[in-house]
Design a protein around this nucleic acid. Structure first.
Lengths: 111, 111
DNA sequence: TGTGTTACCCACCAATAGGTAAGTAAGCAT
DNA sequence: ATGCTTACTTACCTATTGGTGGGTAACACA
């Protein structure tokens, strides 16, 4: 059982740790749905909320914060009142769109 | 926002529900690691346990049960003492190997 | 003055996931 | 008799996740 993953001139991280991290990143009841929503459009907070029916405000705010922290989403606040805040996928966020697509394929088989 | 997924002559399931189900199926701290372990070998319970360091017995047993229920893993008990039990990936289980591979690629970027 | 708007925050609660440590069955070797 | 082996089970506990229902800022408009 030898770690298979190489990083040029850097430490070698065992596959299981990498998978664990990736699972951390993509999991959560709503996260992939939010990413999927943001796939083609820049959306305001309220638009995301309406696009993810069933999610609570607390969780949506928390998810968006984490997605920003992870570098997957960018937040832009315009200093207006009432407030206007826009969220858009970053390039890093786009790297997980293939996962979303795979999930769409695979999910069918388990319905 | 029109549901994009068609099933010939069957009900149309909204994309978000499919993604949600898929996330349910693949999530859990250890599940993808177990699947990855079983990728090329049929393994006994104890071998899996040693291959997933850190997992508790309770959780491992529970995960294996769920994977069997989901049809992703097959369990074979030989009526021996001390017991011998083998676990192997099913074809259905193999359908999520592409997800594991994607996770391996993506996980890197978030380490 | 009062109401609506929007994107939040907060205190509290419930459900689920995961961890710990002990025990069990049944046979074999000592 | 005793202990070793293996694949579990059980009771109990903690941590994380998610949900509920309220509040707030700051301005525009009636």
């Amino acid at each position: 059982m030898i770690p298979e993953t190489k990083q040029t001139n850097e430490e070698i991280i065992p596959t299981e740790l990498i998978i664990k991290k990736a699972v951390e990143v993509i999991c959560g009841k709503w996260r992939m749905i939010i990413i999927h929503l943001l796939r083609e459009k820049v959306l305001r907070y309220g638009e995301i909320k309406r696009g993810v029916p069933g999610i609570s405000e607390k969780v949506l705010v928390h998810e968006l914060k984490q997605l920003v922290e992870l570098g997957m989403v960018e937040k832009e606040s315009f200093g207006e009142v009432p407030p206007r805040v826009e969220y858009r996928l970053t390039d890093k966020g786009r790297t997980i769109l293939p996962v979303v697509d795979l999930l769409k394929e695979i999910g069918q088989a388990f319905m």
